[in-house]
C-alpha cells in the first residue's frame, strides 16, 4: 500500500465525501503482456482510488480474454480505464493516469459521482446541441502541467452529450499511435481524425474547434 501519501489520501477521502453522491464504476482493462509498460502500476493506482469512497467500485477485465466487455466498451488498447456513472459516458483513459493526469482521474470521478460535468451552463447547452458523432483523442505526457485542462474539458463534453466520446492517450505508452498522429507537443487534441490543435484552450474555444471540425466534415 502507499502510492498516495497519507495526507493526500485523507484529503481525497474528504473531497470525495463532499462530491460523490452516485455510484462510480471504474472499469479497467489490463493485460499480462510484457508489452504493457505500466499495467501493474495503473492497477495499483486504481485499487488505491477505489478505497477512497464506498460508492466507487473497480471492475477489472482482461483485454486478451474478456472479449465481450472489450467490445461493449469499444476498447482498442491496454491499459484502458473507463469512468462510468449511471451510464457509460464515453470517458476513457488509455495508459497510466499518473503524474498530472492523476488529477484528471480524480476530478472525472468527482464529476461522475456528482452526476453532472463541471461546465458553465451556456457551454453545457451548446454542447448538448451537437448531433453528430465526435471522437476526441487527447495526447498527453504525465509531466505536462497544462494537459489535464484539455483532458478534463474533453471528458466533461463527453459527459454532457452522448454523441461525444473522448480518450486520454498517454503518448509515451503508445509511441506508434503518437507517431501516426505526428504528436511532438502536448496536449494535442485530435477531433474526428482530421482536425487537431495544441494547447489548453478555455471551454468555449475548445467547443468552437469541435463545431468548426463538424462544419468541415
Amino acid at each position: 500500500m502507499g502510492l498516495l501519501k497519507e495526507e493526500d489520501r485523507k484529503y481525497l477521502i474528504d473531497e470525495f465525501s463532499k462530491h460523490i453522491k452516485n455510484p462510480v464504476k471504474i472499469i479497467h482493462f489490463t493485460s499480462e503482456s510484457n508489452e504493457c509498460m505500466y499495467c501493474k502500476e495503473t492497477m495499483e493506482i486504481l485499487k488505491e482510488v477505489e478505497e477512497l469512497h464506498d460508492l466507487i467500485t473497480l471492475y477489472i477485465y482482461n483485454f486478451d480474454t474478456d472479449k465481450d466487455m472489450v467490445e461493449k466498451y469499444g476498447i482498442e488498447m491496454f491499459p484502458a480505464t473507463v469512468i462510468e456513472g449511471e451510464k457509460d459516458y464515453g470517458i476513457k483513459f488509455y495508459g497510466i493516469p499518473a503524474g498530472y493526469e492523476f488529477s484528471s482521474l480524480i476530478e472525472d470521478i468527482m464529476d461522475v459521482g456528482e452526476g453532472k460535468p463541471d461546465l458553465k451552463e451556456e457551454t453545457v447547452n451548446a454542447v448538448k446541441d451537437i448531433n453528430k458523432p465526435v471522437h476526441l483523442k487527447i495526447f498527453v505526457t504525465p509531466s505536462c502541467p497544462y494537459c489535464p485542462i484539455a483532458v478534463r474539458t474533453a471528458h466533461k463534453f463527453a459527459m454532457a452529450n452522448e454523441n461525444i466520446k473522448s480518450d486520454m492517450i498517454e503518448a509515451n505508452e503508445f509511441p506508434e499511435l503518437s507517431q501516426r498522429y505526428n504528436v511532438y507537443a502536448v496536449p494535442r487534441v485530435v477531433i474526428n481524425e482530421d482536425r487537431y490543435f495544441e494547447g489548453a484552450l478555455p471551454e468555449n474555444q475548445f467547443l468552437n474547434e469541435i463545431l468548426e471540425a463538424l462544419k468541415e466534415g
Binding site: L4, I96, G99, Y100, F102, M110
Partner: peptide
C-alpha cells in the same frame, strides 16, 4: 511515478 493533484478548484 508521482500522483499529482491540486486542491479541487472552486466555483
Amino acid at each position: 511515478m508521482e500522483l499529482i493533484f491540486g486542491p479541487s478548484t472552486q466555483k
